[in-house]
Design a protein around this nucleic acid. Structure first.
Lengths: 208, 208
DNA sequence: GAATATATCCCTGTAAAAGGGGATTTTTTA
DNA sequence: TAAAAAATCCCCTTTTACAGGGATATATTC
């Protein structure tokens, strides 16, 4: 029997998904773990057909988990499930190789359909998510993709460090930090640090 | 038969709770709505014994909803359910008159126990939540309670407005805004706007 | 190898925030 | 009603951020 692994820390959702799959026509043996660490441990001893993956895990982010799974375990398909409808999160998840994406606000029939599609090798993106991705405007507007260094600087800004302090931490000149900061403001179309940090946090760039 | 109302926007959680109650020994007729607005409309035509209330609703916050319910409908008991384990949220919810508090990470047996206790007139606070409330340190430290005006100013700060702009919006002097800002920094023990906004967002004071 | 992206560094202003003091009036609560 | 809390207003100094220009070196990608 083919196996499915649920990686999800909320018991309600976990058990609900479990029961949903068990009572469906899908022929899947449904296992579950509560965090990424246990998930990887399980995968080392078992073979799963599909992983139902929550994005908010207690240890590492679902995005990182997906990246690891996709690089280390060939052929496993990943269906991401999230409650946050934030575009950057969705984009990063898809970039990490997720085969499907549904929202917790999807109803049960849609979830089953998504599982079916993903197992069959198709990519299933929930309508709600598609809507989220489609309203992509002119390049440079809305939510931007950041470089590694920019994310690094952004996190330090959000932690309350000033340019000189960040410069010291990263062993670079304060001018450079200032450049990154300006680029961040530009990319986010933010007029100051306050709204920059707010949008960064609400879009999951800064994990709290 | 006594009625229970579930106010929750995620179908998975909603249906799971529904089934949980239906298949339990609790003698409750379980109805559900997806947002606060429908919830209030339902309550105008029906009498509920208990409300299972999600904190993150699509329209207004669960805290506001709880306040309204408690003021307009006497005798209805409210059991709050949340995925966020942020202390301020919990405190505000309890201040709003919630009779119980469980986390989505609570297991099913605990949820049923909580419902039972709350219906019997007891207050049920999940162990995880209690732990959260208990590590209250010296007053003035950690997460502070804000005044109405401070929250108002804080939200505008997070939206990127400067002191003069906020002053204009609130019809007060820029000096006053500056005072509120200083108090916010003091209360949050934040050295600048960046970390102030970050902690405010992560603690659910600024709803996004 | 050429083009692009990323990261780095620098200067000059102006505007805003932060740190340090105050003070008075209004509202809420005990 | 008296005390406490909240909201209001004011000044001065220093630091930081923001806007506007640059430039160069190192990776990456095509």
């Amino acid at each position: 029997m083919r196996k499915a692994l649920i990686v999800e820390d909320h018991p309600i959702v976990r058990e609900s998904l479990s029961k949903l799959i068990d009572s469906s026509v899908l022929d899947l043996d449904c296992q579950h773990v509560t965090n990424a660490h246990d998930g990887l441990a399980w995968l080392n001893g078992n073979k799963a057909e599909i992983i139902l993956l929550d994005i908010n895990l207690p240890d590492i982010s679902g995005i990182e988990f997906c990246t690891i799974v996709k690089s280390r375990f060939a052929g496993i398909r990943v269906l991401a499930i999230t409650s946050s409808e934030q575009r950057l999160v969705v984009e990063q998840m898809l970039a990490a190789g997720a085969d499907g994406f549904i929202l917790k606000s999807s109803d049960t029939s849609e979830i089953l359909e998504a599982i079916k599609q993903v197992i069959n090798g198709n990519q299933y993106i929930s309508a709600g998510v598609t809507a989220l991705l489609s309203n992509k405007q002119a390049p440079g507007s809305d939510i931007p993709l950041l470089t590694r260094r920019e994310v690094e600087v952004l996190k330090l800004i959000a932690d309350g460090f000033t340019n000189p302090e960040i410069a010291e931490k990263l062993f670079i000149s304060p001018w450079t930090v200032d450049s990154h900061r300006k680029n961040l403001l530009l990319k986010f179309n933010a007029k100051n640090t306050a709204i920059l940090v707010k949008t960064a946090v609400t879009n999951g760039i800064i994990t709290f």
